[in-house]
Amino acid sequence: MEAFIELDGVEKVFDVRRRAGLLRREKSQVRAVDGLSFTVARGEMVGYIGPNGAGKSTTIKMLTGILTPSGGRLRVAGIDPARERTRLARRIGVVFGQRTTLWWDLPLKDSYRLMHRMYRIPDQRFRENLERCVELLDLGELLEVPVRQLSLGQRMRGDIAAALLHDPEVLYLDEPTIGLDVISKAKVRDFLRDLNADRGTTVLLTTHDLTDIEQLCRRVMVIDHGRLMYDGALAGLHEVGESERTLIVDLERELPPVVIDLARTVRVEGPRQWLAFPASQSAAPLVSALAARYPVMDLSLREPDIEAVIAKMYAGRSGQ
């Protein structure tokens, strides 16, 4: 496959000045990204995850040309982003989850009209792309509404559409589902999946929500301390991290801790019990075994969060 995004030993070093005394300042260097190498092929959909301050945003900023790398080689569609930022801008789409690019006081469609002219999108193309986004992201009713009146989920869908009107070859999404309700999250995910499948748009998304990755990305990259810790399938990540999912069981009455082969009971609180089992394993056999032997009232499943997975990864590594 053709490599669309290429990083080879990319580094980003920041000088940090810290006050050390009244006037004296200490200078120290922080390696936000430390020798990062990976490639992403055209049409891939990759999850880019890691704890806060791991270097995710710094990577995205270098990929979009906002920041200049301190070292290494970086290419997107054959272009050096730092040197040809504006040329690259026509070929990429960026959605910053927390910062809208829409015009607060104007109807949503006005923001799109600006994109139309700023990116010099041919009229026919623009109309088709807008129609498609309006249909798939359910924006029809919102086009005439001033952006300030939109809900968070509606605005996020509006922002995603705005980033796609010029047919970008790659879409960067920074926390696209943060703060959204379940329905909005589902709409956004469905849309992204279709976009990737139908148009072959390369997608790189950072997220804290493992469900995003589970439902969208075949490949996941974990970054921490500016280094690539893992690159592969999500299932493999669970194995590496030996992470666990938790089944929360409400029994009819208080009972001694459940004893079952497939899981271990980690907590008991009145009639409620917490059962941990490997994340790589299906919950179905556990649930049926449980229901067959215990008076179960209700069940809920908790996915491991990224921080926990990564913490386990570390623990596993230092234990070896």
């Binding site: 900023k61 040309g65 906002i66 930022r85 504006t86 026509r90 960026v94 910053f96 910062r99 700023m118």
Partner: peptide, 13 residues
Amino acid sequence: DGTLDTLLVRPAP
């Protein structure tokens, strides 16, 4: 507040 970044990804000076 970091909103300068949103301007830097547009194809305009």
